[in-house]
Amino acid sequence: MQNLVQILVDAVALGSLYALVALAIGLVFGVMRLINFAQADYITIGAFALVVPTASVSPPLLLGALPLAFMVGGVVTVVVLLALATERLAFRPMRGSDPATLLISSFAVSYFLQNLVMMIHSGRPKSVGIGNSLSAAIEIGGIRVPGTQLLTMGVTSVMLVAMVFFLKKTPMGIQMRAAAENFEMARLMGVKANRVIAAAFAISGIMAAAVSLLLVVQTGTLDVRMGLMPVIFAFFATVIGGMGSLPGAALGGFIVGFVIVALQAFLPPDLRAFRDAFVFMLVIGFLLFRPKGLIVNRAARERV
């Protein structure tokens, strides 16, 4: 029983992390039909902004040396600026291209950023000691919850709630939902395309910054590919949830997190190494039965 609760806690923590990444991807997809591979590199660069660029494996801290509030603020600023820069320089000139072209251009942007990080920081994984104090486990009612997991759940739930509030209550959030529903119609109603798209990118940047900080606190390492797997899983989360649906993206994120933790816990030990393969197979199996995902969005359909 305790074991089961433990697994549940793990699943919620991982699921909420993926939900965050999936929401960021879903938001940008909603306003411009772009599946953004570069989200992975936003996360990576956010984490690498903590340290001074050197080839060393345990580099001195840069933003990571600042007091907590400034560190978080600094990382968020860096990633948001990066997200806005990619939007302005790479994606805005391609706006209106078909989704396949956009997809491939984001693949190129991602490759560019990844190699840029490798050039500046060298390709080796690095260790960074931030938030060590959080790794101590806290006991709640007989269940040991690592501090990092509590932090993850806390941060992600605050961000998810803030996100819902933003989308439902603020003018910009409502415009964004309108744009996701029908971009042309929203523009005719006076929604400014540039502003709403830039806002979506900025928010995806804030989320990427949060995810990168959480990942660093959890693992204590920096790697040029650290953003890759969360974003790949988040892609599938958005597909499972139904492309273009924001609640679907969050739901898909939780489902993927739950499936991963469940497989990790219940697979026989010699099959555990193949866990991710099983996850992807389940995704494909699921799509066989519901090709359009759980929540079918009107906007996801081919526009005639």
């Binding site: 599946i35 989704p99 396949a100 997809l103 790949i232 892609f235 599938f236 597909v239 492309m243 190494a273 193949f274 866990r275 991710d276 393969a277 992807f280 197979m281 995704v283 494909i284 799509l287 066989l288 090709p291 359009k292 995902g293 081919e302």
Partner: peptide, 25 residues
């Protein structure tokens, strides 16, 4: 047989799943 049932973008993303399945395996 499986992937071609999906529409354009979902199929694209799912081909990525095939790549990862094989790589992990």
């Amino acid at each position: 047989l499986i992937l071609m049932r999906l529409s354009g973008l979902a199929a694209s993303i799912s081909t990525l799943a095939i790549l990862f399945i094989l790589n992990v395996t």
